[in-house]
Design a protein around this nucleic acid. Sequence first.
DNA 1: CGATCGATAAAGTGATTGCTTAACTATCGA
DNA 2: TCGATAGTTAAGCAATCACTTTATCGATCG
Lengths: 123, 123
Amino acid sequence: MIVRHMLNQMPALDRLFHALGDPARRAMIERLSRGPAPVTELARPLPMSLPAALQHLGVLETAGLVRSEKIGRVRVCTIEPHALSLAEQWISARRSEWEQRLDRLGDYLNTLDDKGDDDGANR
Amino acid sequence: MIVRHMLNQMPALDRLFHALGDPARRAMIERLSRGPAPVTELARPLPMSLPAALQHLGVLETAGLVRSEKIGRVRVCTIEPHALSLAEQWISARRSEWEQRLDRLGDYLNTLDDKGDDDGANR
DNA sequence: CGATCGATAAAGTGATTGCTTAACTATCGA
DNA sequence: TCGATAGTTAAGCAATCACTTTATCGATCG
């Protein structure tokens, strides 16, 4: 129970990636990327009951990916772009790390190459 | 049409985002972004047993995020950058969709603003 | 008004996750 | 060769997940 607490400094990213790890929820996000939609329209293409779709929507809202507002008897859902960009930032941070590392590796190999006097055709 | 196709299966993205939805696995990815590491070193900072860490590593490998090679008695793990960029592509595709939509909305509002000339385009 | 449509709550179920401990294999170093 | 090191397998267990069905509530309309 405490196990996850110590490590878990960013529950936002947890919920975010978890929310994206389901095809039904990604389909909802894809639909909402093109504009707001009511619950029923989000649920219609999904091969599941309406309550099930609503639960997925709840996951998306908890993750901060979707916001919804009830107008009359219809709940209109809209995407929350900032949340997605948080995930994007984490990914691109990782990429910049390994790219930096590969650059340093390249420099190191170049140094070795400069030191080698006779054979320039190694590997 | 497309919806059904997209829903049917995109197991790669499923596994990818699911793998990223756990802090222990993200910690492993963060470590590997700085360079290859053996299993024990990946597991050491995590508040769990070694077999548990190994299971997380299995999830990362299944998702294609990590590749590992056994050298002697140590298994050296390295990150697989291409897999992460797949997730990044999905996210940025969504963003470009809603940015396009917002652009169109902005254009529409601008045409409403410039009502000096006639357009007569009512939707 | 009553019927219906959209959304939601509640409860139950089978599968999957995340972790544990225990035992076991293979390699390395002295 | 012996014992420590690095990893691997297996079994088991509690919690969570992704659904289901059933029953409801509130808004809209004939």
